[in-house]
């Protein structure tokens, strides 16, 4: 059984997508995505490059606008407000408020290079939530400790290795106390020997019950930590199920072809 059924997945739906479509001009990158991510789940998205998995992830916090379908986070529509049967676009300010609850980690880290590791973490809580700098710093240090980088608080990103930068980026996202974390190929830009440290941090996060959507090429991580897995290709969900089942016993030809190349 490879379909994700309600019985084997507890928790209320955190992200719900029905027929989500997205195009850039004439090119349709998402051709109707249906999926459901439940609270506390580690949800892995795999697929060849250009399959639309990163685009879908970016739709979830409205970095990309969807052209069709229905997409909600924690029961609320992304980017719109529904009044009666009409949709109203949200203002930039309202979108920003919703993004506070959704952490995102990027492939290229995107740390702020003019700030130290600690300043990177402190920035959003202070600027967005109005937290006092002292309090934010204290929490920031605790987060750095959690990702094993307490001694790098005063280092600038350019003085850190890729793996360290990515762990700071995770701590930065966690500082906003998100209820959902999005990971966009978090280990793809790392040297192989640095991947493990980042995956360790993500593993801890999963153990603590964080809802995570992870676009990844790390099949080992998906198999070990993932609660659900979706294989995407050409802008559609080809196959979904429990990671162990999909990865060991893929049902579709395209999934098999892809896995034979990456495993």
């Amino acid at each position: 059984m490879t379909e994700l059924t309600k019985q084997d997945r507890p928790g209320h739906p955190m992200v719900k997508a029905e027929g989500v479509r997205k195009s850039y001009g004439q090119v349709e990158v998402l051709k109707g995505i249906d999926l459901e991510v439940r609270q506390g789940e580690v949800f892995c998205l795999i697929g060849p490059s250009g399959s639309g998995k990163s685009t879908f992830l970016r739709c979830i916090n409205h970095l990309e606008k969807i052209n069709g379908g229905f997409l909600s986070v924690d029961g609320e529509l992304v980017g719109y407000r529904q009044k009666g049967d009409r949709l109203y676009e949200l203002k930039d300010r309202e979108v920003a408020v919703k993004r506070q609850d959704i952490g995102m980690v990027f492939q290229r880290f995107n740390l702020f290079p003019h700030m130290t590791a600690l300043q990177n973490i402190v920035e959003a809580p202070v600027q967005v939530k109005g937290e006092s700098r002292a309090e934010a710093k204290q929490r920031g240090m605790a987060l750095l400790e959690r990702v094993g980088l307490a001694d790098k608080a005063d280092s600038y990103p350019s003085q850190l290795s890729g793996g360290q930068q990515q762990r700071v980026a995770i701590a930065r996202a966690l500082a906003m106390k998100p209820k959902l974390m999005l990971f966009d190929e978090p280990t793809s830009a790392l040297d192989p020997e640095l991947v493990g440290d980042v995956l360790d941090v993500m593993r801890d996060l999963a153990r603590e019950g964080m809802t995570m959507i992870v676009v990844t090429h790390e099949m080992g991580f998906a198999r070990e930590v993932g609660d659900a897995l979706v294989f995407m290709d050409g802008g559609v969900v080809v196959e979904s199920g429990h990671p162990r089942e999909v990865l060991t016993n893929p049902q579709h030809e395209r999934t098999r072809a892809f896995l034979s190349k990456v495993l």
Binding site: N61, L63, D92, R93, A96, V97, R99, Q100, I102, G103, M104, F106, R108, N110, L111, F112, P113, H114, E123, A124, Q127, V128, A169, R172, A173, M176
Partner: peptide
Amino acid sequence: VDEGQSEASHALGMSRFTTMRRIVLPQ
């Protein structure tokens, strides 16, 4: 300034103004 910088800032919930003032302009 790299596009990823404002994306990261927006993803943290910072407004366009804060992003400009704190992230983009200093760089």
